[in-house]
Design a binder for these strands. Structure first.
Lengths: 326, 326
DNA sequence: CTGAAAGCGCTTACAG
DNA sequence: CTGAAAGCGCTTACAG
């Protein structure tokens, strides 16, 4: 089925069919005829021919560092749902945490004439900025922020602040903060900064900062040395994964959480609710953020005006991993 | 940059460039010139023009019921990696567990001229079979099997058998098997069947079968009634999610796992290792299965001969959620 | 091995 | 509102 056959069946010109298909104005008689013929034949336009000519598609490419992450998949689900509603299609490009592949993906998506790019970002390097400029396609950062880019971020700093406040309110005064590399601004810098702000409002409080990776097992390994050297009453972990690792390590040593040791996380991963004890955490709304991101990139694609940065919400979820020392 | 410009720069005809690009035979002088020009210009062929003419792409569409599942994402990762190596591209189509959308996706992928379809299947209905026939595109089922289809499955039945054997070997003789709907052949039927086979080899053993959904929270809810009515020494759960739910429920009631109650799962989800106690489970190799699937669909696309059904391996992972009653 | 030409299925000025 | 024609960037017989 091609546009030519439809034209013949309806007794009009190809250009008229095309106009009808693209919402142009056609006479009512023509419209009726076309409607009928297209329905009867089940005609669907050929995407390639269309894209070849129009030089663009209705595809939004999303670059994601990894597929096996709660945050990533939830965000993708949100993007997917919203894009579908808006008549766009999602193309996922997984980079397996390889920054080079991230750059490649930007160019290769452009080559595929996608309408816009959403990048679930971890770090923004100069190569990224370079690529963004060169490709001449709207780009939206999710999870990280950069002055030169549109972005949608989580409120990491406020979340860090409120976690800090809560921990203090429960009487904890000897705290181990387990963070990650400062290369990751959102997770490594902002969450910590918010937390520190809360701490500064409290006179007597001892905090030691540790750094680990995003890897759960590494957190498990780190635990004994921290515990031995410092003996905090609570571990404030920069991600739920780290919190899970600390919890596992503590339980393996026969400690009772929260009686012997308290733990908090960030993220609101599903597991933190299912595990025993449930972990107190700052829950981000990844799926909702994905929807917001989809809306924003579509506007960007259509040349509409949008805020440079959108901030997605969070909730502090109180569960049983924090003991009250009061 | 188009093929025409390259042709001009190299002083040859467009058709020669095309032939060079597609691995056809060209004279060595031409080859050298073309190589240089293409490198210098950074020319990349336009996918749409190519697909329009060639009427097919090097894209493999994968239909997945949900993105937020360990099994699904691990399988996707495997597919993605392998496809990339083979020079194919992955297009993910998420259906949010909506069977209708699954059917739609099949047709819509065909419309996009993808080379082949991988379906991470749950159920195969007549509509599926219908669609498979109509689309005239190679289809590979992953996770479920059907006589009319090529498929890659996990060894659910043997896994069920070995879990059964192990449970019996630890002295358990009063067992609650918590399964799922028999609409899902792999999970609902085969795992149970394998388990039953093991049970039949043991004279004195009491088993009661319960059914729940794939939803973790529903398992939590089911727990008290089962416990009260039956009081088993062990819960054999048809999925790790169910096992996690049972574990959570047990711990909420103050029971000690495995001292007061034992639990096993199926799947080998990452959480089952991280949680305390670790859950004894049949681990499937999802990523590896994804790679196998990718290899198989590529062969299918190329018209090579492949086995109707491929079986992916599993391992029984012994952890601390099962008490020895001996 | 190489080239000229037709054609894939659309869209887009342009004329009417 | 409608149609004829050119063209998007490639591939594919066909001839040489």
């Amino acid at each position: 089925m091609t546009i030519g056959e439809i034209a013949k069946l309806a007794g009009v010109a190809k250009s008229t069919v095309s106009r009808y298909l693209n919402g142009g104005s056609v006479g009512v008689a023509t419209r009726l005829k076309l409607e009928r013929v297209i329905k009867e034949t089940g005609y669907v336009p050929n995407t390639f021919a269309r894209s070849l000519k129009a030089k663009k598609t209705n595809i939004i490419g999303t670059i994601v560092p990894r597929l096996n992450s709660y945050a990533a998949t939830q965000t993708l689900i949100g993007i997917d749902e919203e894009l579908r509603e808006q008549g766009y299609q999602l193309l996922i490009s997984n980079t397996s945490q390889n920054l080079d592949r991230e750059i490649e993906s930007i160019y290769s998506l452009e080559n595929q004439k996608i309408a816009g790019i959403i990048l679930l970002a971890t770090q923004i390097t100069d190569e990224h900025l370079d690529a963004f400029q060169k490709v001449d396609v709207p780009v939206l950062l999710v999870g990280q922020q950069h002055e030169q880019c549109y972005s949608l971020i989580h409120d990491d700093e406020t979340a860090g602040y409120e976690i800090g406040k809560y921990v203090l309110s429960q009487g904890h005064r000897k705290i181990a903060f387990v963070g990650v590399t400062e290369n990751d601004i959102a997770v490594g810098v902002k969450r910590k900064r918010g937390f520190q702000k809360a701490i500064q409002e409290e006179k007597e409080c001892e905090v030691t900062y540790f750094e680990t990776s995003f890897n759960l097992k590494e957190a498990i390994k780190k635990f004994p040395s921290i515990m031995e050297a410092y003996k905090p009453s609570i571990f404030v972990c920069a991600t739920d994964n780290i919190a899970l690792g600390i919890l596992k390590a503590a339980q393996m040593e026969g400690l009772n959480v929260p009686r012997d040791l308290s733990i908090t996380g960030f993220g609101g991963y599903e597991v933190t609710e299912v595990i025993h004890p449930g972990i107190t955490t700052a829950k981000f709304f990844y799926q909702e953020a994905g929807e917001l991101a989809a809306k924003k990139i579509v506007k960007l694609v259509n040349g509409e005006e949008v805020a440079k940065v959108t901030v997605s919400n969070f909730d502090i979820i109180l569960r049983n991993s924090v003991d009250s020392l009061i």
